[in-house]
């Protein structure tokens, strides 16, 4: 299972021009994602971890082609051949939409308040022209039961405001899965939910991954969630991937100074626990036209002149599928 590549991301970049004025042409760019390389294998779940503003969500939206990349290639291995997501248009893009879906962060925003649950879940079927009305109704009912909204008949023709947050997120999951996609980008699907329903939704997503063979890119800022959900974890910092490894390997042997700092910030359920002083200093720097040196230079505890004078380090294999982008480890 591990050897079949599903998504192959090569040198993916997204730059946003900074608005300076109506007529002036800007040469300031926010480097939301820059030169990202990642292979996602069929059937696995990859976690994408990082702090706010590091480009996690942008990466996710690039992969499902909600936004167009500035540079780079995303090769998606569909059943009927490989497509480059970055250049899809028209009919091919519409077909691609059947293979790839996304679950959004906020279930209060991602469901149209003027549409019933049935209309929301059946929207992809409707747009793609799949099935007749009774077939769609049956498919939606079946799926609602799968995501735990039972009995389906009592949920189908309700409106989002009649549902709780957890139920709404289950509806959003049902909508993402209704076209039977092979790849789903989950953008912090549990972060807006009450802690009491979080595990339920996470368990559901795992079950569905096992049952339907869905591959996830799971975007989160919560390492505990990533550990529960994912086989591999990629850590991002300011648009760059700084570390990538199997989940347990990453959590037990973090190598990049940023990953180490991230792990040391995870709360420990022990009031007498004395926290080691934070290794890193300062706040996240601005991703606007970053200077050609390691992106983590300003905050790094182990950086030296070499890190300042050279471009951002490439992702290097440190053995055992553990990749780190740092000159010093």
């Amino acid at each position: 299972m591990r050897d079949e590549i599903l998504v192959d991301i090569q040198h993916l970049s997204k730059l946003y021009p900074v608005e300076t004025g109506f007529f002036t042409r800007t040469n300031l760019f926010v480097h939301a994602v820059s030169d990202l390389n990642l292979q996602i294998y069929r059937g696995e779940s990859v976690g994408l971890v990082g702090e706010s503003g590091c480009g996690k969500t942008t990466t996710g939206k690039l992969l499902v082609r909600l936004i167009d990349p500035t540079e780079g290639k995303i090769a998606f291995h569909a059943e009927d051949g490989v497509v480059d997501v970055a250049t899809l248009r028209g009919k091919a893009l519409k077909r691609f939409r059947r293979n790839v879906q996304m679950i959004f962060q906020d279930p209060y925003e991602s469901l149209n308040p003027r549409m019933t649950i049935y209309d929301t879940v059946a929207e992809p079927l409707d747009v793609q022209g799949i099935g007749t009305l009774p077939e769609r109704e049956e498919r939606v009912a079946e799926l609602l039961e799968t995501v735990g909204l039972t009995p389906a008949s009592s949920f189908m023709f309700r409106y989002p405001h009649e549902l709780s947050g957890g139920q709404r997120q289950r509806v959003a999951i049902a909508r993402a899965l209704v076209v039977e996609p092979t790849f789903v980008v989950a953008d912090e699907p549990t972060s807006m939910l009450d802690v009491s329903v979080r595990t339920g939704v996470m368990q559901l997503m795992q079950e569905l991954a096992d049952k339907l063979g869905v591959t996830y890119l799971y975007i989160t800022h919560d390492l505990a969630v990533a550990r529960y959900m994912c086989q591999r974890i990629a850590v991002m910092y300011l648009g760059k991937m700084v570390e990538l490894a199997e989940t347990e390997e990453l959590l037990h042997h973090p190598q990049h100074p940023y990953t180490r700092a991230l792990l040391s910030a995870v709360p420990v359920p022990d009031p007498t626990y004395k926290r080691k002083p934070m290794e890193i200093k300062g706040g996240i720097s601005k991703p606007i036209n970053p200077p050609p040196r390691c992106r983590f230079y300003e905050r790094c505890p182990i950086a030296d002149d070499f890190c300042r004078d050279n471009d951002h380090p490439p992702l290097e294999d440190k053995g055992g599928n553990h990749f780190v982008a740092c000159y010093k480890v």
Binding site: R97, F104, P124, D126, Q128, A176
Partner: peptide, 11 residues
């Protein structure tokens, strides 16, 4: 709002 993005993802 993100239900527009969801509609685009629906195709």
């Amino acid at each position: 709002r993100s239900f527009i993005e969801a509609a685009r993802l629906a195709g």
